[in-house]
Design a protein around this nucleic acid. Sequence first.
DNA 1: GACCAGGGCGGCC
DNA 2: GGCCGCCATGGT
Length: 276
Amino acid sequence: MDYRVKKNEILIIGKTDFNPKHILECGQIFRYYYKDGVYTVYSKDKRAQIYETSVGYTIKTNAPHYFEEFFNLKTDYGKIKNEIITKFPFMESPIKNAEGLRILNGDFFEIVVSFMISQNNNIKRIKLIIERLCEKAGKDMGEYYAFPTMEEFFKLTEEDFISLGAGYRAKYLINLKNSKNLLSKAFYGAMRDDAARENLLKINGVGPKVADCILLFGLNYYNAFPVDVWIERVYYEYFSCEKKTRPEISKYLSKTCGDLSGFVQQYLFYSKIVKN
DNA sequence: GACCAGGGCGGCC
DNA sequence: GGCCGCCATGGT
């Protein structure tokens, strides 16, 4: 896929390796919005609006370099898809189903908070809670609200989080201020995947599945294979009928798929949730 | 009105 | 170490 970064936009040339619907609706990000043919996505305090063109897509934004990284535009998906299909022929259909899906490089703090909220929850309600969170504590950018900075976030009380609809997760969100050193991307630096996971698990409210999502969507460790209720079903459907716990399934699938894990996981997850 | 959702924690054994 | 009940809430 070819692209050009301009002053106030990014031009995407080609449609097979970039599809905003599949990128945004696959459950890796929760602040996006669709209206009249335009997808709008927010990250941190930034916004991008995506229009389809005759040759590809145009991403309108005042932070083009940020979104170049956010969309991981340098990643070669043609190669990734070929490797996956060669190794797992059954993946051809899920990949076709989710053509143009890309794994994003999200803002680390936003990803941590978002996936802590995601536990035992559904995507629609996760979006709702995060939207209320931004409105409550994020900076007013005029046409939208930014995701709260850590400083803004830590000012909130447990009652505030409950009023957002966070429910029993409110106490985890309050406790986040006790883990400040674990909340910056820089802390993880060139850490090995297992060391990074071990550190993430120290955060109260972050278990194996949420840690895998943070590793994948916040730090781009592509060997992470998050296993939720949907992927558990996929495992018994496509991979094995041997009974395992979710962490065991994750370990097994990560070992089986190696550095293709994150991509395989997203293609399967998306294909599963759009059919249901 | 029960059941479900991108699960994790704490208590028990 | 593994298992199990509980945890808020909005949608179906």
